[in-house]
């Protein structure tokens, strides 16, 4: 009796929570509202099933609870009912899968006109690379990584000389231009995730992975690492700024290329990143965690 009541409260309460709670997905800022639509369809189909099963059980518990002198019915199977339920379930599943696969096909098919950029990950920061004037990213190799060449670019590749390097700073993207994001890591798994863009993909050392999207509103967005990568995982952030075209061009002018950076690194103390690296190298053997960014409060400014 109480159980029937609790089941009803649980089902109705879940629906009310879903409709009224303040927690819902972050407002979208990319073309992937298709994904949101697929989620909405899934919510409807599965929600109906959840409510139906919950309320049906509550009814059974109430109506067929043990009473003196009653006896259960004897009905081992009911072929017609079982087939009927199977067919309806199959239709429901197809109703979710079809739009899902359709959108997945879009997700993995990059439009030809997409700009290409690269995100490089290492414990525990993101860096970015743009192809520069020639529109082509130069080749890279983890073996080339050094304090002078933290991106590990191939110094002899002419395509790489004009690549724009953005080390441990904000990435800017122009509004409404599709962008293919190439992902690379030099140490372990990471994942580049901006919730407002709805897209994410792991970064795997030894491989280049990708996803694409089109930013659809200007603003400043925070990206986080979404694949466990060690102690500093929770501190691994970056900022992505989506600009109008003119603001974007202004920003782009201020960035330096691989060639410039290489020259500068050879003459001076090196980049921010290589500072962090050299600190690690001079640390004693058991201060492995010496490079972990300090705890959250100080970290964020």
């Amino acid at each position: 009796m109480i159980l029937a009541f609790v089941l009803v409260v649980l089902v109705v309460g879940s629906v009310i929570f879903h409709l009224l709670s303040p927690w819902w997905w972050t407002p979208i800022a990319s073309n992937w509202d298709y994904i949101d639509h697929t989620i909405t369809i899934t919510f409807w189909i599965t929600g109906v099933v959840f409510v139906a099963i919950g309320l049906f059980m509550a009814y059974c518990v109430f109506r067929f609870r043990h009473q003196e002198g009653t006896r259960a019915a004897y009905e081992p199977e009911n072929k017609r009912l079982e087939w009927w339920l199977t067919v309806v379930t199959t239709l429901g599943v197809a109703g979710m899968l079809t739009p899902g696969l359709f959108v997945w096909n879009q997700f993995i098919t990059v439009p030809k006109e997409a700009d290409v950029i690269e995100v490089m990950a290492q414990q525990w920061q993101f860096s970015f690379r743009l192809p520069g004037k020639d529109g082509v990213l130069g080749t890279s190799d983890t073996g080339n990584v050094s304090s002078e060449n933290p991106f590990g670019l191939n110094p002899n590749d002419p395509n790489g000389q004009d690549d724009v390097l953005i080390e441990a700073q904000d990435l800017h993207l122009p509004l409404n231009r599709p962008v293919k994001v190439l992902l690379r890591s030099v140490d372990t798994l990471h994942n580049f995730y901006v919730p407002q863009f709805r897209a994410k993909m792991d970064m795997v050392p030894g491989m280049v992975t990708y996803f694409w999207f089109t930013p659809t509103r200007t603003g400043t967005f925070e990206s986080i690492c979404a694949e466990l990568c060690g102690t500093g995982h929770y501190t691994m952030r970056a900022v992505v700024v989506v600009d109008e075209d003119s603001a974007y061009q202004t920003w782009l002018q201020e960035q330096s290329t691989f060639k410039q950076a290489l020259a500068k690194n050879r003459n001076s103390t090196g980049s921010k990143l290589s500072l962090a690296l050299s600190k690690r190298q001079t640390g004693s053997a058991d201060s492995v965690y010496g490079v972990i960014p300090p705890k959250r409060n100080s970290l964020r400014n």
Binding site: I35, I39, F107, A199
Partner: peptide, 21 residues
């Protein structure tokens, strides 16, 4: 039932993209 239903979200590849991890 509740847990199985959310499995249909995560199993449907493109829905998993924002939700995984």
């Amino acid at each position: 039932v509740n847990g199985g239903i959310t499995g249909l979200f995560l199993g449907n590849v493109v829905v998993d993209v924002p939700l995984s991890d």
